[in-house]
């Protein structure tokens, strides 16, 4: 029996394929997760694990062709995003679901003022006059902590620093009070001190506006600090899903375990950073069996032959590893 509360976002068996030069590669492979209203979900994984592709697929912003999106279910507030027309989807984008990107330096259009770009978003989704929208744009800039917003609103992106530009991107994403914000590595391109400021701002606004956030990152420190629940992705698959405290306390998947071990500890002198040997397999050369097996210190024969299913220990906790199925596999 499914829970009577419809989750804000329901993803079932979402796959994204790309067809390049006659070859079909799978960037995201049958992933499923839910997101409740006001929840902050972290998606973690190395580069190439498909985490950004998930966000773009949710926005239906994958270029088709060469891409194609399959999903058994991809519903937002009970509405199926897959069956929406282009016009219906545009009414969702930037309005109910917003996205901010990794590169603040290039994500704003260099030839329009930031005011213009904000007003445009507002007017696209709300029945306001240009003047009202402009006033709202100034308010939004103030909300995201841009000093002297009345003056900045007529600035061009090149007048602003990276951190300020990312604040503008956040203001633009929040312009229509979305229920869901997809933040794709929002601080990766910023200085460490600015990173913290931007994340604090996001956290503050998330609470204030009660929106759900999908925070995509490769930084486990960020995950620990700012998310409620975590999905760990590896090579296009979800390998583990857990509340953030559980994940850090007792990772179930070897990949998660190694990711945690590779975090530089703050409280001791570090002579050598632990790295996970090898790299994420290319989508064209996926290993059979568990995709992590070639890099896994615990890998057994069965791991190399058959892919493990997600084993759900509790509603919030699951992992895909043979060790969870059968601890009697000879060591």
């Amino acid at each position: 029996m499914a829970s009577p509360v419809i989750p804000l976002l329901e993803v079932r068996d979402l796959s994204v394929h790309f067809r390049t030069e006659g070859q079909k590669v799978t960037a995201v492979d049958r992933i499923s997760f839910d997101l409740a209203e006001g929840e902050v979900l972290g998606i973690v994984g190395e580069s190439g694990s498909g985490k950004s592709t998930v966000a773009l697929a949710l926005m239906q912003l994958i270029a088709t062709p060469p891409g194609s999106i399959d999903a058994e279910r991809l519903s937002f507030k009970g509405k199926d995003l897959m069956s929406m027309s282009d016009r219906e989807m545009r009414a969702v984008r930037g309005n109910e679901i917003s996205m901010i990107f990794q590169e603040p330096m290039s994500s704003l259009n260099p030839v329009f003022t930031i005011g213009n770009q904000l007003v445009e978003t507002i007017c696209e989704h709300e029945p306001l006059t240009k003047r009202q929208a402009f006033a709202k744009a100034v308010d939004l800039l103030r909300l995201v902590g841009i000093p002297d917003p009345e003056a900045r609103v007529t600035d061009y992106p090149h007048h602003l620093s990276g951190g300020m530009r990312q604040r503008v991107m956040i203001a633009m994403a929040l312009a229509c009070a979305p229920k869901l914000l997809l933040a794709d590595e929002p601080t990766t391109a910023l200085d460490v001190t600015i990173q913290a400021q931007v994340l604090e701002l996001l956290q503050h606004l998330q609470g204030e506006l009660d929106m759900a956030v999908v925070l995509i990152t490769h930084d486990l420190g960020v995950v620990a600090e700012y998310t409620h629940r975590v999905v760990v992705m590896y090579a296009g698959r979800i390998v583990e899903e857990a509340p953030v405290a559980d994940l850090f306390a007792a990772p179930q998947h070897p990949y998660t375990e190694l990711l945690l071990k590779s975090m530089p500890p703050l409280d001791e002198d570090l002579h050598r950073l632990l790295a996970i040997p090898g790299s994420v397999p290319s989508p064209t050369e996926m290993p059979t069996g568990c995709r992590f097996a070639p890099r896994c210190p615990y890998a057994q024969n069965i791991c190399r032959e058959t892919e493990p299913a997600m084993i759900r220990e509790s509603p919030a906790r699951a992992a895909a590893c043979w060790r969870l199925v059968d601890y009697k596999v000879p060591a």
């Binding site: 926005m59 912003l61 545009r90 009414a91 969702v92 984008r93 930037g94 309005n95 917003s98 996205m99 990107f101 590169e103 290039s106 994500s107 704003l108 259009n109 260099p110 329009f112 445009e120 978003t121 696209e124 989704h125 991107m169 633009m172």
Partner: peptide, 20 residues
Amino acid sequence: DYIRTARAKGLSKSKVVGKH
């Protein structure tokens, strides 16, 4: 990237191409 941003804002293709 700013074209992707414009599309993520929900703008129509004609606005994305014709303006941005």
